[in-house]
């Protein structure tokens, strides 16, 4: 079965994302745009994932939980997990490696996490746009240890991508590679290639046309489809 997916969406806890990006609003927009499978990937935190899970369930969407980790090389890495608990545990782990620099909402934006009814639960203290102390290889190891999916983000972008930071894509294990411009997929054909919205605003959700052919709606089936390149990118 072909499912339409968007694996890279930011919510209001990402300092650079719009405050309108509550998990409830994202799930509603995802449903409206015809997505089947969505993942929440905020910068270096998974604190909005519990609400996201509830909101996606309300909309009948298949959801994954994770974050976009910034490595010490300042490369953005999409890390996805099957369940919220693992995502939250990984989030706590990464937070310990975030520099002790407080967020300044007036400069970088708010970092609020909410419940499924859009009620604010709290605010993250450290600036989440910063680089963690974990290298690309550290992040990969920690994600695979937790049975997650490891996807370098927008590798064709001139900033905050593995390629912009290292100058090339190291020959290593990746669940898939994310490109910002689907036309660049051919440059990374050695790996399964996906493209996501990287939405920071509601209207950008589902901006890319990504379809995955899965045997069934399960994390194992999804991993299998990604690894075997059963991907349609328009």
């Amino acid at each position: 079965m072909l499912v339409r997916a968007d694996f890279h969406i930011h919510s209001c806890v990402s300092p650079c994302a719009s405050l309108e990006m509550s998990p409830a609003a994202i799930a509603e927009k995802a449903k409206e745009k015809g997505l089947d499978l969505v993942a929440l990937t905020d910068h270096n935190t998974a604190l909005n994932c519990p609400a996201f899970k509830a909101n996606c369930a309300q909309q009948g969407l298949w959801s994954l939980y994770g974050m976009e980790v910034t490595s010490s090389e300042e490369a953005h890495l999409v890390c996805l997990f099957e369940d919220v608990e693992t995502a939250l545990e990984f989030s706590e782990f990464v937070y310990k490696y975030m520099p002790d620099i407080e967020n300044k909402p007036e400069v970088f934006g708010d970092q609020v996490y909410v419940d499924e009814n859009e009620e604010i639960l709290g605010e993250v203290e450290k600036y989440l746009g910063n680089a963690s102390g974990l290298s690309i290889d550290d992040v990969r190891e920690e994600v695979f240890f937790r049975n997650g999916l490891f996807i370098p983000a927008h590798v064709d972008k001139p900033v905050f991508s593995i390629v912009s930071q290292l100058g090339f894509l190291p020959d290593a294990t990746y669940t898939a590679i994310e490109v910002f411009n689907p036309a660049n997929a051919k440059d990374y054909a050695k790996y399964p290639v996906i493209s996501d919205s990287d939405a920071h605003y509601l209207d950008d959700v589902a901006k890319k046309q990504l379809y995955i052919d899965v045997e069934e709606k399960s994390f194992a089936a999804l991993r299998d489809s990604l690894q075997n390149n059963r991907i349609v990118l328009k």
């Binding site: 090389e73 300042e74 400069v107 970088f108 680089a131």
Partner: peptide, 30 residues
């Protein structure tokens, strides 16, 4: 490396860099 700049650049300084994007201004402000 903007995280390094944020942590170590002195105040009232000039930053010499190739990071030509808006995030650099936010880091500078901080």
């Amino acid at each position: 490396l903007l995280s390094d700049v944020m942590a170590n650049a002195p105040s009232d300084s000039i930053l010499i860099t190739i990071q030509a994007h808006k995030n650099t201004i936010a880091v500078a402000t901080l």
